[in-house]
Amino acid sequence: MMGKLLSAEFMKIKRKGIWFLTVLGPIGVVAMQMVNYGVRKEYLFRQNDDRWGYYLDNIHSFTPLAIVLGIVILTSFMSSIENETNAWKQLMALPVSKMGVYLSKFTVLSVLLLISSVLLLLFTLAFGISLDLGGEIPYAGLLKYSFYPFFAALPVLALQLWAAAVSVNQGVPITLGILGVILTYAGYALPDWLIWKWPLLMNDWEEPLINVLLGGGAGLILYAAGMIDFVRRDVK
């Protein structure tokens, strides 16, 4: 059943601008550094001898914001597909389980964000090479900075999906989303337990992997809680 649901979901996101956003996100993040390095390349090269590392840090300064913003926009687009003409009732009157429907939405969003992450990796690598940063290419760091934020942001994804799927008024998930983006933006000054800070990959132990594990764990819990609530409710 999951396969059928997923192929139906991927069909429904056609012409919604969802694929466009998926590509635009990583382009935006790298484009910021294109401007940055385009304007003051020499100055930036002088800042740190590890030019690749410094470049990756610069890239990562916009990734968390882009991923949280992306999650907010994608979840709201995704749920608008059903909310627009209240097609939930039509979808749920088909022989599908509510859990299956919820899982298929979550899966599609995860796949889109993973595609964004892969693109981020490729764009970062390509622009990095074109900058002629010198030294060896730090593939481990590249992978880390491309995929860790996605896993660290899973709780935000679970939370936004739940809010968008159960709210009759879409102002609720949008408000929550804007709040989340602001919290991510101000993440440096916030305590570690706030899920919106996690994509920054900062913590007291200076070990980004903790954010990944926390993200996966908390994401799973929030996902399960959201799904249970979604299943329990009457269809809108």
């Binding site: 059928k4 069909m11 627009e84 003409t85 209240n86 097609a87 088909l94």
Partner: peptide
């Protein structure tokens, strides 16, 4: 109640999304 549909898809695509299921 009121008919539900996916406005950005064609009639055939609307039915296809349900046919798959």
């Amino acid at each position: 109640e009121s008919p539900s549909y996916y406005p950005h898809l064609t009639a055939k695509e609307n039915l296809e999304a349900m046919r798959k299921i």
